[in-house]
């Protein structure tokens, strides 16, 4: 596991080096307009002064992304458990899985904003909707994959549905919940940023919309790199959590 982590870090380091080299070459050769590839010092300055230090930019967007993701995962898990306990609702998991696969939910953030309100509520609601479907579909499907022998053991020892849920279903569903968290970790920030870009007066998305209007490319680059770093960090953390959960529960990926 430690080797995998080192290899991943090395991969990111390699790509970062490639980006830096490409950036330097593009600036030196003047093949790309200076407006598109600004001075790295100006990007760093924008990153510190406008993106990180401003409480109405990065902290707000990340808080909204986190709140939306946690809310979506919780809602999805609770509804998956409810539909498991009420078997007639089981096909809902499949329908939800279908929506998750074939609808570009992020593109519907304007519609979500009309339902839940513009600005912060739209950002949280978009992240919630994006995180809801994976957790509902994956946890729901896992709850129906319980080995019948395990159920028999619990029933023979006098356990009821509550015991089955607590001792068998939830431990089996846990890695799927972590997998859902991993899949949505990347999109939480994207969802909040996209909704803010269209509907908010604060957050990274609103700053992005303002910077676009002012042709402030250093700030646009700073926002792009911050958002990318946040998404990838969240993904890597959740990937590690998934591997640890599966190892702890002696389960293997697929």
């Amino acid at each position: 596991m430690r080797h995998t982590g080192a290899r991943r870090l090395l991969g990111y380091g390699f790509l970062l080096g490639l980006l830096a080299a490409g950036w330097t070459l593009a600036r030196a050769g003047a093949a790309v307009p200076a407006l598109l590839v600004p001075d790295p010092a100006r990007v760093a300055e924008s990153l510190i002064t406008k993106v990180v230090a401003d409480p109405a930019a990065l902290p707000l967007t990340f808080a909204r992304a986190l709140a939306g993701t946690v809310l979506g995962l919780t809602l999805g898990t609770v509804l998956a458990i409810v539909s498991h306990l009420v078997p007639i609702l089981e096909p809902l998991t499949r329908v939800s899985g279908m929506i998750m696969r074939c609808v570009p939910v992020l593109a519907l953030s304007p519609l979500i904003a009309t339902f839940f309100g513009y600005g912060g509520p739209a950002a949280v609601a978009t992240a919630t909707v994006m995180s809801f479907f994976p957790s509902f579909a994956l946890v729901g499907a896992a709850l129906w994959r319980i080995p019948p022998a395990l159920l028999d053991v619990i029933r023979v020892t006098g356990g009821g549905r509550g015991t089955i849920l607590r001792r068998v279903s939830l431990p089996i569903a846990l890695p799927e919940l972590v997998l859902a968290a991993k899949l949505t970790s990347c999109v939480g920030v994207l969802a909040a940023l996209t909704a803010e870009f269209l509907t908010a007066n604060d957050g990274l998305g609103a700053l992005l919309a303002r910077s676009q209007g002012l042709l402030d490319t250093p700030t646009v680059w700073a926002i792009l790199l911050t958002s990318l770093a946040g998404s990838l960090l969240a993904y890597e953390v959740m990937d590690l959590a998934e591997r640890k959960t599966r190892a702890r529960l002696s389960l293997h990926k697929n």
């Binding site: 598109l36 992005l208 676009q212």
Partner: peptide, 21 residues
């Protein structure tokens, strides 16, 4: 890693950069 970056790149932030180029 490159593909993962493609997946995680915020298109709304990429848009303004592409507009200029």
């Amino acid at each position: 890693h490159l593909m993962l970056i493609c997946y995680a790149v915020p298109l709304v932030a990429l848009g303004p950069l592409l507009t200029a180029s």
